[in-house]
């Protein structure tokens, strides 16, 4: 049985990402009108504005960067962190509008995606999901459907259709009884089912793990689902490297399609630990890509 250590008040769910949404509204309009190079200039003052007027996000950024970089954090680091977030939101507009020609992608581990019977792609609020889905669209063989909690599904749908009414990103909400059947049907057709597994809206079963030398709690749900439907699980992240460069990484996380000698619960626990290990590894490698601007390690303190 999974341990139900629940995060009663998940602070991020209560906060409707006010900053990122208002940022997005301003940028969508201008970006499509004036192009990436010209509108990118606007990111500097926008970043400065959010850095000055979002003290909570700033504190979270500082606390995170201290862990990831293991050295004192300067304003310059905070600025780069916020700027990297602004850049990925800005680039999202072009990626959703299929302007792949504007970017330079390096891809690692793409061979892991060659599964005929479907697989789970597990990511985090680390880097750009749109950069990953761009690979899917360029490489017509990979079809991705996103699975998420109902409230997020509605929000993301609204954002996507605002940016590009033809975006066609398929989304399954977890709120309906038939969600599992829908997911299974997609897997049978060879789809990759994507989930972001670093946050929960509260009341979901979590496990303690170590990320950047400190205990955090990660939901087990995404891995329980993959185990139930007996599919391989691949980690995904689209790290922003500055300029127009993205590095997309796929890493093996678990394979629930083969026998689990130590039992299902142990296999799930191993997968959660490995996921935490990969988050740790990529946070150190590309620290400005962590887009959880709240106290991820102690969400109950907010």
């Amino acid at each position: 049985m999974t341990v139900h250590s629940t995060l009663e008040k998940a602070s991020w769910a209560a906060e409707p990402e006010r900053g990122s949404l208002s940022m997005l509204r301003i940028m969508t309009w201008c970006s499509l009108k004036f192009g990436r190079k010209a509108t990118r200039c606007a990111l500097y003052p926008i970043t400065a504005y959010f850095l000055l007027f979002s003290p909570k996000s700033r504190r979270a950024s500082r606390a995170y960067l201290e862990r990831a970089q293991e050295r004192p954090v300067r304003w310059r680091d905070l600025y780069r962190h916020f700027f990297s977030f602004a850049s990925t939101i800005h680039d999202r507009i072009y990626l959703i509008n299929r302007r792949y020609d504007l970017f330079d992608f390096e891809i690692h581990g793409e061979h892991l995606l060659e599964k005929d019977n479907g697989l789970f792609l597990i990511g985090a609020h680390l880097g750009s999901f749109e950069a990953i889905s761009a690979i899917g669209k360029k490489n017509a063989g990979l079809r991705v459907v996103m699975l998420m909690h109902e409230a997020n599904a509605q929000k993301i749908n609204a954002v996507l259709s605002a940016i590009n009414p033809q975006s066609n990103q398929e989304i399954i909400g977890l709120g309906n009884l038939d969600a599992m059947l829908k997911v299974e049907a997609k897997l049978n057709k060879g789809y990759a089912v994507g989930m972001l597994a670093d946050r929960t809206p509260g009341n979901e079963a979590c496990r303690p793990v170590k990320i950047l030398n400190e205990t955090a709690h990660l939901p087990t749900g995404p891995f329980r689902m993959a185990a139930l439907l007996k599919r391989p699980v691949v980690f995904m992240t689209g790290l922003y490297l500055g300029g127009n460069r993205y590095a997309i990484h796929f890493d093996h996380l678990a394979d629930f399609s083969v026998a689990m000698p130590d039992g299902r619960d142990q296999a799930i626990q191993d997968a959660v630990n490995r996921y935490a290990g990969l988050l740790d590894q990529y946070c150190r490698k590309a620290p400005y890509n962590w887009f959880n601007f709240f106290d991820f390690w102690h969400p109950e303190s907010e």
Partner: peptide, 27 residues
């Protein structure tokens, strides 16, 4: 939690021959 609920609903649909449809079914 939500995954537990989905797991039970799958088991119940098999055992009792329920049609799980999203329209109108309020989890």
């Amino acid at each position: 939690d939500s995954i537990d609920i989905l797991e039970i609903s799958l088991a119940i649909s098999k055992r009792y021959g329920l049609q799980l449809r999203s329209d109108g079914a309020d989890n």
